[in-house]
Design a protein around this nucleic acid. Structure first.
Lengths: 338, 338
DNA sequence: CTGAAAGCGCTTACAG
DNA sequence: CTGAAAGCGCTTACAG
């Protein structure tokens, strides 16, 4: 079923068929109607690939993502798709093997995508440059590239970590620990840096540290390492909620500790589960909707020709105080024993 | 950057460039090398759209899905993408507004997709027919179309519901309730039908019923409706885990009931959270990996020419017994009061 | 407002 | 093994 068939059926030229399907093109209403009718009868739909070829631009955005098990990302994928669909774009998803997306990127670049969105994945500066010269705009969500001038959207991770430090110190904690995510993820690094800075500014060091790799199992191990000792931390800031929940589960059900009576737990992201009654997790929100909105806007701005307003968009999220971290000194205790 | 440019650079014809990128084409090793070199220097990649146009088939599979908040589906999306990528296909995702995907489907059909996968979404038999005549194979995952001969992959939902009834009756429950998902989703209907059949076969009726629409909030309401009464059920079979967890949270933290001491809860899916220590949810597994494998195989079989082996693939899942449903009669109680 | 012609970037018979 | 030519399904100047 091609435009030629429709043209023949409607008794017009192929050009008119094309115009009938192009909003704002100059066609007589009558001609357009004849084309629409013929198309309906034949079950014709314009072929988007052929159109892309000739227009030298597609309406497809490539989305590269590495983790879908962290419940923050399904929300992101959903928000991205809906927003892009609303603007007439479509999403070609690509699940990368690991955070480094270089190899997978080569594959997706076979498709003439209008732009690229990378969530929880990064590319080398070499490939970033290659895309730049090929004229394919890229926006990174939740990651940054060290040495290439890519556009990125992140939460204010440093500030979030800093806020957590203040909160924990204000409520009298003296032995705060940190559980990191992936070693080279900028989110984890920034959250830790802000946290440490906040601690040191008030004269404290991080009492203990472990790495959970942003996985559930990794976080369980990290919790055991940190807390199955004689003198455990009195609080732990976990680099994301996904891990924080694993930590709470381990603390309570494996080690028999009470949260927050024995130890305070704070996460990052504010995923839906954080609000569940079983956890009531105190956490720093990472506003998925607003971040996605900013990322998609930045990308489409570039796709549609202009250069983006900003290179690094940082979106502030609030500390959401629930019940997994105690709010004041424990009764009968004057500041801890350190 | 086109094959023409590469041809010029390598001093060969455009045909040779094409052959150099076609596995198994007859080119001299030397020619191929020259092309590869030139391509590398110019940063050339064959344009997949142009190739699709001429081959009259693409390597893109459309994936339509409606719910990403139910944690069963991120696993499905991930499994689908990885499997399809492994076979050289790519995924164009489309989030539908609601379960009825007809309108959204029209849009995605602008792309010459090789096939269509629909998860937690259905299409009308009219549109199913239209795709059939257009030669676009469709596989439904977790839904069935009433009156069109589409191929579908589902868990054995009827049997799962039946098994739950037996389990609940064996362990002495006398007032079993059911919380349904979406009214017209075949998963919910089949699970309920099997459950009722299992109950009736042993002389019991469903004690109470509510609808949760497969959402967290809907399930919270359903739990209140069912349990905030003078004579509540002694067990509840919830149409999926996502809702079952909402039910457990409400039962425990809003109504102050103990699970399973006061009431048993059983879910469906075996999502990751079901195994968490806070829930230890007894549930019927829905084997995501196996279901996706079957769905992708069935789809690619059709895409690659042959008709599929089966129309309705049903995959059996086990009842996974954990701690959210009691295993025997409560002490001092001889069978309930009904 | 409309049609004939050229061309988007590729592949594939067809000759050689 | 290789190249010239035609054509996949569309759009877009260019005339009229």
């Amino acid at each position: 079923m091609t435009s030629r068939d429709v043209a023949r059926r409607a008794g017009v030229s192929q050009s008119s068929v094309s115009r009938a399907f192009t909003p704002g093109a100059s066609v007589a209403a009558k001609t357009r109607q004849a084309v629409i009718d013929a198309a309906r009868q034949l079950g014709y739909r314009p072929n988007a690939f052929a159109r892309s070829l000739i227009k030298r631009q597609s309406r497809i955005i490539g989305l590269m993502i590495s983790q879908l098990d962290n419940p923050f990302y399904p929300r992101v994928v959903e928000a991205i798709s809906r927003r892009l669909q609303a603007s007439g774009y479509h999403v070609l998803v690509f699940l990368t093997r690991g955070e480094d997306a270089d190899d997978d990127l080569q594959e997706i670049l076979q498709y003439p995508v209008a732009g690229l969105l990378m969530a929880s994945a990064t590319l080398s500066s070499r490939l970033a440059g290659e895309c730049a010269t090929a004229g394919i705009p890229i926006v990174l969500l939740n990651r940054a590239v060290a040495d290439a001038p890519t556009v990125s959207v992140t939460a204010d991770n440093w500030q979030g970590g800093f806020d957590v430090a203040d909160f924990l110190l204000d409520s009298g904690h003296r032995r705060p620990a940190f559980i990191a995510g992936l070693a080279n993820a900028s989110t984890s690094r920034d959250r830790e840096a802000g946290f440490l800075h906040g601690l040191r500014r008030r004269g404290l060091d991080c009492f203990a540290r472990a790495v959970g790799d942003y996985t559930f199992a990794g976080a369980e191990n990290a919790a055991l390492t940190l807390f199955d000792v004689t003198s455990p931390p009195d609080a732990v800031f976990v680099a994301n909620d996904h891990m924080a929940i694993a930590v709470m589960e381990t603390l309570r059900h494996v080690l028999g500790l009470r949260v927050p009576a024995d130890v305070s737990v704070i996460g990052y992201d504010n995923v839906p589960q954080a609000a569940w009654a079983s956890y009531r997790l105190t956490t720093v929100e990472q506003p998925a909707e607003r971040m996605v909105a900013a990322a998609v806007d930045a990308l489409l701005t570039q796709v549609e020709g202009s250069s983006p307003a900003e290179q690094r968009i940082v979106i502030r999220g609030q500390l959401i105080v629930r019940d997994s971290a105690r709010l004041s000194l424990p009764p009968g205790c004057s500041g801890g024993e350190t």
